[in-house]
Design a protein around this nucleic acid. Structure first.
Lengths: 135, 135
DNA sequence: TCATCTGTAATTATTTTTGTTACAGTACAA
DNA sequence: TTGTACTGTAACAAAAATAATTACAGATGA
C-alpha cells in the first residue's frame, strides 16, 4: 500500500492554497516530506489528468489548471487509480479447486461495489471543501 | 498492499464449503496457492476473532466456529484490519508548513468516513451469501 | 549565458510482504 | 507406546513493491 493518494491530495491542496503563485516541486516535497522526484512524477500524472499545469525553466513551477471547486476528491482518487481497495492476491488460486476456480471473480465483484460506494462518496467532496477544513 | 483479506475470505469460504469436515492448512494453502504457514498465521488470527476453531494432532484441522450466516464480510474485514483504505504516507509531513501541519488529521477523517461506508456495506453481506454466489 | 526550474530515465536503497525452515506440542491409531 | 500427521510459532531468507537518489537534457527568464 503506497502513499500516492496522500501525495496527490497534499500537492493539490498546496497548489490551491498558493492561489495564483506557482510552486516548485522542491518546495512541495519539503511540505510532504518526500523526495522531489516522487513529487514531480505525481505532478506529471496530475497534469495528464488535467488538474495541474506546469511551466518549465527559470521561474517555472506548478499551478492548478482549474478551480478547486471543480476538482472532487473522487477525481483525484481515480487519477491515482490504485489497486483493489481491500488488497490484492499475488498468486492465482488453484483452478482445480471449485472455490479457487471462482473466488477471484467474486472478490472482483466485491471490489467493484466498494469502488462505486467510495467514489460516490468522495465525488461529493471538492478539493475546495477539503481545503476549507484547514484552520 | 497485501493479500490478507483475500486469504481470510478464501479460508472461510473453504471451511464453510467443507461443512462439518475439518480442513488442514496444507489443503487450504493448495487452494489459495500460498504458503501453508501464511495460512496458519491467518487462521490463528481468525481463531482469535472467533470465526474458526482448530484441533491439533493427527486428524486435526480447522472448522468454522459459527455458522456462515453469522459471519459478515465486514466482520472479516475488521478482523484482518488493514491500513487506511486509500493508502498511507510513510513520512510525517512538515509541521512547519500550514498544510503539512494539518493534512494528516484531515486525511484521517476522510479515511474514517470511508471505513464506515465500507463496513456498513459489507456488514450486510454474510459469508453464506458470498458462498451462495459460487456455482 | 547563467541559474533555476521541469521532465524523465536509470539505478540504488529501504520497507513490506511472502516464503522457507525448523521444531515443540498435541492427538489419534496401529 | 510409538509413529504419523497435524497445529502453532518463531526465526530467518527471498522476493516484490515502494521510495530515494543520481543524472542529465531541455526550457526559460534574468
Amino acid at each position: 500500500m503506497n502513499g500516492r493518494f496522500q501525495i496527490a491530495v497534499h500537492i493539490l491542496t498546496l497548489l490551491h492554497s498558493a492561489g495564483d503563485e506557482s510552486l516548485s516541486s522542491e518546495y512541495m516535497a519539503g511540505s510532504i516530506n518526500v523526495n522531489p522526484v516522487l513529487v514531480r512524477k505525481e505532478l506529471s500524472n496530475l497534469r495528464k489528468a488535467g488538474f495541474v499545469k506546469s511551466k518549465e525553466g527559470n521561474t517555472g513551477g506548478y499551478m492548478l489548471a482549474k478551480p478547486a471547486q471543480q476538482i472532487s476528491i473522487a477525481d483525484i482518487y481515480k487519477a491515482v487509480e490504485q489497486s483493489p481497495l481491500l488488497g490484492k492476491a499475488r498468486n492465482v488460486p488453484n483452478p482445480a479447486c471449485p472455490i479457487g476456480q471462482q473466488i477471484d471473480q467474486h472478490m472482483y465483484a466485491l471490489n467493484t461495489q466498494l469502488i462505486h460506494l467510495v467514489t460516490d462518496h468522495l465525488g461529493q467532496q471538492t478539493l475546495k471543501q477539503f481545503y476549507n477544513q484547514f484552520k
